[in-house]
């Protein structure tokens, strides 16, 4: 469903990502590890299509179509969705308005209420989007919007960072719904690419492949649990050695 080939990305003229190759098939969830500043967010933003992240080389093929150059909203309509690490505050726009906009056709009070209830976000629905939200509220509100949008490919940027242990299970549940974990593997059509700092999310989702991203390159690819163990015991430096 997603095929990234030899992708290089620059931000404000500065090369950030170099020669990225990454393939996600329908029904698969992959995770990205890596230290701060490694380029994880940049990769997701480039797939989503923010013009600030300029593709200088390579291709991003989604559902058989090279989407490089397509505006963000067209990619969204093709079935790509993203939850942001630090979404902006949008003053005067209610969270419920956004959820309604995401549901599009089927936006009814009842639908929105159901969505909000699921994410334990009822009180947030009348508030201005992201205004004064706690870290955990931001993450849940992002996921509710994505659930409403129901994308085929979900790009999740650190969905669990800043979330307390009680709420992490809820986050895990929402992500699993997004990625159709309740379906038997052969019926799962949704794909996911999740950035995780802590790896906590691995306790909930069924991740097939993990990557370590360092200095704008993917330096390691493999079983996500094994990678997490290595990072935990030996740090990212060990991964760097692996490169050499």
């Amino acid at each position: 469903m997603l095929e990234i080939k030899r992708l290089s990305v620059a931000v404000e003229g500065k090369g950030i990502l170099h020669d990225i190759d990454l393939t996600i098939k329908a029904g698969e969830t992959h995770v990205l590890f890596g230290p701060n500043g490694g380029g994880k967010t940049t990769l997701l933003m480039a797939v989503m299509g923010s013009p600030k992240y300029e593709v200088t080389k390579g291709s991003i093929v989604f559902k058989g179509k090279n989407i490089v150059g397509l505006p963000i909203d067209e990619r969204a309509r093709l079935g790509i969705g993203m939850s942001l690490q630090r979404p902006p505050v949008v003053r005067g726009v209610k969270t419920s308005d956004m959820v309604a906009a995401c549901i599009r056709g089927q936006a009814s009070e009842e639908n929105i209420h159901k969505m909000a209830e699921k994410a334990n976000l009822i009180e947030l629905m009348d508030r201005e989007l992201n205004y004064g939200f706690s870290g955990g509220e931001i993450k849940r509100s992002e996921l509710v919007q994505l659930l409403a949008q129901n994308p085929d490919l979900a790009l999740l940027d650190e969905p669990e960072s800043g979330v307390d242990l009680v709420n992490i299970a809820l986050i895990g549940q929402l992500i699993n719904e997004l990625l159709q974990k309740e379906h038997p593997i052969r019926d799962r059509r949704h794909g996911g690419l999740i950035i995780t700092h802590t790896g906590h999310i691995l306790d909930y989702v069924n991740a097939r492949t993990g990557y370590v991203m360092l200095d704008g390159r993917i330096i390691c690819e493999g079983d996500p649990h094994e990678i997490l163990e290595t990072i935990k015991s030996k740090g990212y430096e060990e991964c760097r050695k692996c490169v050499r």
Binding site: M48, D73, M82, V90, M98, A101, Q145, Q149
Partner: peptide, 19 residues
């Protein structure tokens, strides 16, 4: 941000202005 949710540029702008 709003375009990522499927709104066109014009719809996103209108939503922000309304807000």
């Amino acid at each position: 941000y709003l375009m990522m949710r499927g709104l066109t540029r014009d719809e996103a702008t209108a939503t922000i202005v309304r807000g």
